[in-house]
Structures are given as C-alpha cells and as structure tokens.
Simulated scan of single mutants.
Amino acid sequence: MSTVPTAVITGASSGIGAATARRLAAAGYRVVLTARRKDRIEALAAELTEAGHEAVPYALDVTDRAAVEALAASLDRYGPVRVLVNNAGGALGTEPVASADPADWRSMYEVNVLGVLHITQALLPALTASGDGTVVVLSSTAGLATYEGGGGYVAAKHGAHVIAETLRLELCGQPVRVIEIAPGMVKTEEFALTRYRGDQDKAAAVYAGVAEPLTADDVADTVTWAVTRPPHVNIDLLVVRPRAQASNYKVHRES
C-alpha cells in the first residue's frame, strides 16, 4: 500500500475546490476529487496526472449518505487518508426572509451543513487511524456575521461554522485537527452566477468596482498553508478577505 497521504476534496469540479486540488497535489498529496460533475473532475484528474501527480476522480453528491459511505469504503485501497477538505457548498437566491423559498433554504442546508456532516462522519475513522488527520471546513464570513438578503445562506454557513467548532471540542486529545477557513469576497466563475440563478448582470454587479477580489487560488493557497503546518499546530479559524473588503457589507468600490 502506498505511503503517499491522501486528501479528499469535495466540490472539486471548479472554483476553490479545483484550485485546492491543484495546490494539495503539488504539496505531495494524492488527491481524491469528488463532485457531481463527473466530466469536470475527470478532466482535472487527467490534468494533474499529466503533471506527475496522483489524482482520483470520484463522482459524488455529498447529500447522498449511501454514496458518501461507498466513497469512504473505496479509499481502503490507498494509503493513509490524512486530509478532508469540505468545500462543496453554495448559495441560492437573495430574497429576504419574508419571501424566501423554503426549498432554496433546504437545498443550501443539505449541501452546506448535512453534506459536511455526512462525509466528515464517514471519513473520521480513517482520518483518526492515520495518526495525523485534518478536517478542513470551508465556511464563509457569512458564517460569522449576517446581511440582508442572505438569510438562508448565512444560516447554512453558520451551521458549517458550528460543526467545525463543536468537532474541534469533541476531538480534543485525538490525532485530528479541525481547521475552518472563512473566505470573504471571492470571484469565481460560478458562485454568484448560481446564486443569481444565471443572471450574468446581477452576478457581475457583486464585484463591480472591486479591483482585486480574492481568487479561488488565493483561498486554495490559504487552505494548503493551514493544512501543511506542523501536526501540533491547529489553525482554528482563519478569515481571509480582499483588502477592499472590511466586512460583509463594507466594500471599497472604485468609480
């Protein structure tokens, strides 16, 4: 069995997930790429393999408990599972609480909260058995403070934040670190577009006048830095924002 450590990344088909896979692969991990879009993760795995890295694509919906458990069972063939990056998530809609669609809230809760719960529970035995495991939760500054029109997403990301905080308490004394990375404004190809249901103009307006929002690679660099600290060092919570953003609602925009 290989001694190359394995890192499992959810939501690896694009954005922060794909960028994190590239960074962790370069740092010496075998990366297991999970996402619903099989074609995307297969293309990324081929890219990484061509570059000399070990990459395994695995089509997965993190809200499907049976599928998550099947993934966990399949990892036995590899070396130690050292890292889990809970990146799968997303926002849907900006309606106020008074008129929000409960189906949107349920969808966000399923992926941002229960998805994290499913795969963390499934992989925790292997992470613990490795003797040096790390659980990363990609939350958001939305998990730390609220804003108008963000009720459903904010509630879900608060849930992800609480999972990380509680798990860290419960695992105290075990060989598993729990790291939470909470990004602020990150410009990716899909996040805002999905939130605004494909409306290109509304998605673009989120970043209007902001010269340098964070990129997916900025966040991936942060994740990789936290993961590769010495085993006794735990980065409990790291908030990362662009310089132009002071809070969820205070952003410097150039005219």
Rank of each mutant, 00 (worst) to 15 (best):
V56G: 02
V56L: 11
L60K: 02
L60C: 04
V62W: 03
D64M: 10
R65E: 12
A66M: 02
A67Y: 06
A67N: 10
V68L: 13
E69A: 13
A70E: 15
S74M: 03
D76R: 11
R77T: 15
R77N: 10
G79S: 03
G79L: 08
V81Q: 04
V81N: 08
V83F: 01
N87I: 03
G90I: 06
A91Y: 07
A91W: 05
L92G: 00
G93S: 07
E95N: 10
P96M: 05
P96L: 10
A98C: 04
A98E: 14
S99Y: 04
S99V: 12
S99N: 13
D101W: 13
W105T: 13
W105A: 11
Y109L: 15
V111A: 03
N112M: 02
V113G: 02
G115K: 04
G115F: 04
L117K: 05
T120I: 11
Q121Y: 11
A122Y: 10
A122K: 08
L124W: 13
P125I: 13
P125L: 08
A126D: 06
A126V: 05
A126T: 08
T128L: 10
S130E: 01
S130K: 00
D132A: 10
G133T: 01
T134K: 01
V136H: 01
V136T: 01
V136M: 01
T141V: 15
G143D: 04
L144R: 11
L144V: 07
Y147M: 10
E148V: 10
G149K: 07
G149F: 06
Y153P: 00
Y153L: 01
V154I: 15
A155K: 01
A156I: 02
K157F: 00
K157E: 00
H158D: 08
V162S: 13
A164I: 03
T166E: 14
L167V: 09
C172L: 14
Q174C: 12
P175H: 02
V176Y: 02
I179L: 06
A182P: 08
M185G: 09
T188N: 10
A192K: 05
L193D: 11
R197I: 07
